[in-house]
Design a protein around this nucleic acid. Structure first.
Lengths: 209, 209
DNA sequence: ACCTGAACACCGTTCAAGT
DNA sequence: ACCTGAACACCGTTCAAGT
């Protein structure tokens, strides 16, 4: 599979992203990436300072794909659209999500949702510190939902399966057994529910003063 | 450092947890764990089927430390206490948090907060599906906040630092520059803010019907 | 400037052998 | 039943050498 176009940082990032989406983070390695590119493992280090540097660059590439185009409307619509966009962008690259979650130095473009959210919430009357806290809340929520979706929530957390496998007894967990989790679960709906709850909670906080 | 007590699954898990808290997940390896226990790497495999199995056991051990003792009061207090407990338990073992976040098959004790939350919310009048969604919302929020706290939120996300390092320009991000993130940030307060917003959002949802 | 081959210090895991 | 030594098939990364 020897491409003869010259190696470059961009080509490494693109191929790494493709490889992550194909095989997942666990199976990613510099040597296998080099194989895919028909090149010696060591050639990689001419364009990238380390594996960590490369993976960070991949996370940046994914995040900067997001198009937070101007949205008109009240703050709820602005903020809601912003995090729906972030979610969709992440879901488009499941293999890279763990990297985005644990990014150390964020790509400039991640400041866009922060700016949009903080500006919208301050405009609605929220204080500076609470606005950043709300941004942090929305970010952890969104990336958390995406992360669990990709890793397959419901595989280990379905109470009915847990009982079937003898991991818990039905007597001690009456409430959660009412829910047929596996058959009915929809991540999109769960996300919209969570988003509505959060925006609603911020709204009541704003009205209270 | 050769302990002469016999090896066992429990001793492996305990030492692995200590090692994770000391050095972090990146530096964890079966061989270094064996060194700490004064034993051949291969001895580990008499008590554990793989590295993944061991790390899963560590995640289980951490989660099952939590004491969700019965709390009296309205649903907001019950649910709030439940997730404060989950958060505190996770923060006690920073090194193991990534394992808890990505656990595939959850320890039975993680069904306790699920049971508590779903029961409390259904008792308050929420439907079965929404109750599970609310649990999912609270879980992603809580573990997300803990995860970012441990990895050092604010290191890469502080807008002032980003400008200082030339990663973004001050002109395009007016709103977030108002906030002195690094000096004033408090994770406990941010968590309490988020929790209040979520519980408040659920509350208004309940009142609306 | 960019790629290579050989090498170093690690990994997780298997297996036959010991007690 | 549990531990060991040697081995296998991998890692990330460095370095001197090639073009």
């Amino acid at each position: 599979m020897a491409h003869r176009s010259p190696l470059s940082r961009d080509r490494l990032v693109a191929e790494a992203l493709a490889m992550l989406d194909d095989d997942g983070l666990d199976r990613f390695s510099v040597r296998r990436l080099a194989d895919r590119l028909g090149v010696t493992p060591m050639a990689v280090y001419n364009h990238v300072s380390s594996k960590g540097d490369l993976l960070q660059a991949v996370a940046d590439a994914v995040v900067s794909e997001a198009d937070y185009r101007a949205v008109r409307g009240d703050w709820r619509r602005v903020v809601g659209t912003c995090f729906r966009t972030l979610r969709t962008t992440c879901l488009a690259h499941p293999g890279a999500v763990p990297l985005v979650e644990s990014s150390q130095t964020l790509h400039p473009s991640i400041f866009r949702p922060m700016e949009i959210t903080v500006a919208a919430l301050r405009g609605a009357g929220l204080g500076a510190r609470d606005a950043v806290r709300a941004y942090f809340l929305l970010t952890t929520f969104t990336l958390g939902q995406v992360g669990y979706q990709i890793r397959g929530w419901g595989r280990g957390v379905d109470p009915r399966a847990a009982i079937r496998e003898g991991r818990i007894s039905s007597a001690t967990f009456p409430a959660i057994l009412d829910v047929r989790l596996k058959e009915q679960w929809d991540f999109d709906q769960a996300f919209e529910f969570g988003l509505a709850v959060i925006l609603g909670g911020i709204d009541t906080r704003l009205r209270r003063r």
